[in-house]
């Protein structure tokens, strides 16, 4: 709660007179994050809310206003005229029509239906889990292949030369560009999706592992040898833990890329999963289902990042200190 009120200033930067341009004095105030979240929901609600009154209602209202004058409040008059909600949608003007955008209420209803009855043979949770499980498998193999290769590249000139060509050649290929080939080879659904995610994450993991090895201070390596460590011990006890911060950054980036790639891949190459759910909903004009899918994708993406940051704080507390 105190964090919410930090918009009033305070903390170590409170007495700074030069803050414009001082990057350290700029941070994200939670209050304003909340304001923008509420703002987005309000805009969404307002944009999909029927505005204005139907014409016959307006006539009744004006007649009543003329007769009663100042003896009645506006609110009472509205109620007595039999307020708006029962009227036909077509009589309203609307910024975003029901064929363009689902309202928050409709989306909420859609969410509840998706939770219980589901859409396209699966409930919302099943779609989410199918997508998430694909990402988990893709990341697992991406890390499994990428980290040893990247570390080898950081440790041996011969292996660096050997792997440089494929890494530099394949890394710039957008994973989605290679999806048609994967569908051709492995069919739609899990087989091509998981392989695509390995392809999406493995280069990122190679680069980050290589960079992680590169960040180790020579004095640490020399100290370890001086203390009697063997080569495998230096690798396991010094180089690997020293590379953890870089590896974590790599995992976070790869996770974000994988998630985005997967949902796009599922639009064409899968019969289940969040991306495929959205795509099928489009065919039936189920805007509510599409919106629920989009929101769930966003929320899972944020949760994954929060989870990684939590892990990072637990596993590598020395990061950015000393």
């Amino acid at each position: 709660m105190t964090a919410l009120f930090s918009r009033f200033g305070g903390g170590p930067d409170a007495r700074k007179t030069v803050t414009f341009g001082d990057a350290a004095a700029v941070r994200s105030l939670p209050f304003w994050s909340l304001v923008s979240l509420i703002g987005i929901i309000v805009l969404w609600w307002a944009g999909t809310k029927p505005w204005g009154f139907p014409s016959d209602f307006q006539q009744a209202y004006e007649a009543k206003a003329a007769a009663e004058g100042d003896n009645i409040t506006t609110r009472q008059m509205l109620i007595e005229c039999g307020a708006a909600p029962d009227c036909d949608d077509s009589m309203y003007s609307q910024f975003l029509g029901p064929r363009t955008m689902a309202s928050p209420i409709d989306t909420w209803r859609g969410f509840n239906v998706l939770r219980t009855d589901g859409f396209a043979d699966h409930t919302l949770w099943e779609h989410s889990w199918i997508s998430l499980w694909r990402v988990i498998r893709g990341m697992f193999f991406g890390i499994l292949f990428g980290v040893p290769v990247g570390m080898a590249m950081g440790l041996s000139s011969r292996l660096r030369g050997l792997f440089d060509t494929p890494v530099e050649l394949f890394r710039p290929i957008p994973p989605l560009g290679i999806l048609p080939l994967f569908i051709l080879w492995f069919g739609i659904g899990d087989p091509s999706a998981v392989r695509l995610l390995i392809f999406a994450s493995v280069w990122i993991m190679i680069i980050s592992a290589r960079a992680g090895v590169g960040t180790v201070k020579l004095s640490k390596i020399r100290a370890a040898y001086s203390l009697g460590a063997s080569k495998p011990q230096v690798l396991r006890r010094v180089i690997l833990p020293n590379a953890l911060p870089e590896l974590f950054t790599g995992i976070r980036v790869a996770l974000g890329v994988s998630w985005g790639t997967l949902v796009a891949a599922e639009l064409v190459g899968a019969e289940a999963g969040l991306g495929s759910m959205i795509f099928r909903a489009r065919n039936f004009f189920r805007l509510d289902v599409m919106l629920v899918g989009i929101i769930v994708i966003a929320v899972i993406g944020v949760l994954m990042d929060v989870f990684m940051r939590f892990l990072e704080a637990r596993l590598i507390p020395w990061r950015g200190k000393g």
Partner: peptide
């Protein structure tokens, strides 16, 4: 010919293992 535990080394800084 190579580093060994008979010769200990103390560096200026940054040679401790933060983990």
């Amino acid at each position: 010919t190579k580093p060994g535990p008979d010769r200990g080394m103390v560096f200026q800084q940054g040679a401790l293992f933060e983990w």
